[in-house]
Nucleic acid binder design. Structure first.
Lengths: 143, 143
DNA sequence: ACCTAATCGGACAAATTTGTCCGATTAGAC
DNA sequence: GTCTAATCGGACAAATTTGTCCGATTAGGT
């Protein structure tokens, strides 16, 4: 469904949101440790998120990452878009570039319904909401 | 969403269903031509589908492929399963192997809802239904 | 000034997915 | 029997995704 990079990206953003409720900056090492991801690979993904302004980074001795906006304003859809692009929201289920209402593939209408529900879910779920689940111990970022 | 192999597999099965309404056998060459797929790669995918009894193949001069069951009995879910496995139906949105109701990842509940709708769609959509759209010119296997 | 701990970026490596090639086998048509 | 057109299977190649390494830069602490 999502790429590995996107999975790491979502986990990282949730962790950063959770840790920086009090405005704390988080280091790459802490992030990779918290979400069990390869550090160098995670760094690449955080760079992508920074370029999309979802993160702010600070270099130097006490540097690290913070959210680029308030956690309640960052929706999952923005993270997925930044890493995997919009194909998951708009792409054809059978991979056609020009599949459309006018010239639909055989599964177009049925697939669109599911795709739209996925997009709706991602567009309405904020990091704030997800970090709260962590806070109260209802959900987990590690297994 | 689906792998390229799975996309080809679905297209191929819809085409075979459509062509063999009258019991006609279809050659690999015809299939790959009809769905614009690389012939040798498509052959591998058809072998997988045959091993899962979704197809029957006949070797020799007048050989080719036919459906292993009636088109109304073959649901999309069986094809996806045969090629991509069941991870798309049961897998965690963040990639955890042991994500569950007991120890859910942060997006577990919201993701499960979408995943279940996808599965429901695939479980209730038959090849017969899809080949009818082709027949009346409402849908297309090529662009 | 120097040390240290952090991000940044480019080049590289490994793994997976996608795609190709070719020889072996099969069976119908003549 | 021979020719031909088809599937079958294994080895290989290309492309993409995932992951690693390392040197450069940055800035705080002493």
């Amino acid at each position: 469904m999502f790429s590995k990079a996107c999975e790491y990206g979502i986990k990282a953003m949730i962790f950063i949101a959770h840790e920086s409720e009090g405005g704390n900056r988080v280091s790459l090492r802490d992030i990779a440790g918290a979400i069990d991801s390869p550090e160098a690979f995670t760094a690449k993904i955080l760079q992508q998120l920074r370029k999309h302004r979802l993160l702010v980074s600070v270099k130097g001795n006490t540097g690290g990452f913070e959210l680029g906006q308030r956690s309640s304003e960052i929706m999952l859809a923005r993270i997925v878009e930044a890493i995997d692009g919009t194909k998951i929201f708009t792409g054809c289920g059978l991979g056609f570039a020009a599949c459309s209402e006018d010239r639909p593939c055989p599964i177009h209408h049925k697939f669109k319904k599911v795709r739209d529900e996925l997009q709706g879910m991602l567009e309405t779920t904020s990091l704030h909401e997800l970090s709260q689940g962590l806070e109260v111990g209802l959900t987990f970022l590690k297994q």
